[in-house]
């Protein structure tokens, strides 16, 4: 009985903003006992509905309601309840006297155990949610280019690697790849970026195993033949794969990767020129889809973290075997 009484109070309280109902409820206020006891009076339909509806919320509300509705339903309360307005969890049978109850509830529902539990739960939830939020953000980036109607970066190509062997986009499948566009006669940015690429590759391999292919595609096929690339890239990292090809093939690969470059189509032997080109690293997933572009503003450490996090998110198969094995 007492909880229902509280609930009536709770119901009255919750509905305060609605003036029409309030008038009706004010009328009920006079005879709370009778409305609860007898169910055939005209007013009872609405009352019992309210009681049923607010039953759950009342359990949570008892603390507020307890003090305010004493005048209203005081006559229904047992003396025990008057002294413990906060109680809603202790089994009543265990506490026999008021003193016991007082001792039990000294300080309200807050004690050390509750505080520790609260902090642990909050901390755990926070850590989990932060992790999930970051993971979802990465997934969103990774999924942005999956599916139909999405802008596509990357695509089929047919080139020659630094050993003179054919290398196509199919050779990228099964591993993540980090694709960079550059040229060996690049004054300052590309060498810095390739040094960074070597660092990134080492860090990612250390964390995730050999699942990343570092690839440098030249934008200057006239000068960068396989032999030049091999000698050039050897100084940065022996694992970096240099790709070159005919001018048309390079133009095609630059187009599918949305890379701007400005090599003159026909150059004389020995001619001295620079190639203007986009300077992003393109991270491609094991299915050959674009994941993320990494710009110059990333340090090797930051970039390695971005890449490793994406690799750890990957749920599909990954080839751990060496490509050359």
């Amino acid at each position: 009985m007492p909880p229902s009484c509280n609930c009536l109070g709770g119901a009255l309280k919750t509905l305060r903003p609605s003036p029409a109902l309030r008038r009706e409820l004010d009328a009920l206020r006079i005879t709370p006992r009778r409305t609860l006891a007898s169910s055939h009076r005209p007013n009872t339909a609405i009352t019992s509905r309210l009681v049923a509806k607010s039953d759950l919320s009342c359990l949570l509300r008892t603390r507020n309601v307890g003090q305010q509705d004493q005048g209203l339903v005081g006559s229904l309360r047992k003396p025990l309840l008057l002294s413990r307005p906060f109680s809603n969890s202790t089994p009543r049978s265990a506490l026999k006297t008021i003193e016991q109850v007082r001792a039990r509830n000294k300080g309200g529902p807050f004690n050390l155990t509750a505080a520790i539990l609260f902090i642990c739960t909050a901390g755990g939830l926070w850590a989990y949610l932060t992790y999930e939020k970051e993971r979802m953000a990465r997934k969103r980036i990774a999924d942005q280019t999956k599916g139909v109607g999405k802008p596509k970066v990357g695509g089929p190509f047919d080139l020659v690697d630094h050993n003179g062997d054919r290398f196509t986009s199919d050779d990228l499948l099964g591993k993540y790849s980090l694709v960079y566009f550059g040229f060996s006669h690049c004054p300052d940015i590309c060498p810095d970026e390739l040094d960074k690429m070597a660092l990134m590759y080492d860090k990612v391999t250390e964390k995730c195993g050999p699942v990343l292919l570092p690839i440098m595609i030249t934008c200057d096929p006239a000068r960068d033949n396989p032999a030049v690339l091999k000698e050039y890239l050897q100084e940065f990292h022996p694992e970096i794969i240099g790709l070159t090809g005919e001018y048309e093939n390079i133009k095609d690969v630059c187009k599918v990767y949305r890379v701007y470059f400005s090599t003159p189509p026909s150059v004389k032997p020995g001619q001295d020129y620079l190639v203007d080109h986009s300077i992003y690293f393109y991270l491609m997933d094991p299915e050959g889809d674009f994941v993320e572009a990494i710009g110059r503003n990333f340090t090797a450490d930051q970039a390695a973290k971005v890449i490793s996090d994406h690799i750890k998110d990957w749920e599909g198969p990954l080839k751990k075997k060496d490509r050359w094995a």
Binding site: H185, C186, R223, V228, E231, Y232, E235, P269, G270, Q271
Partner: peptide, 18 residues
């Protein structure tokens, strides 16, 4: 080269240039 480009833009050559 005759055009004034590096024969080989190796690390040592780059360092000298810088």
């Amino acid at each position: 080269t005759s055009g004034g480009a590096f024969e080989s833009p190796s690390r040592t050559n780059r360092a000298k240039c810088y």
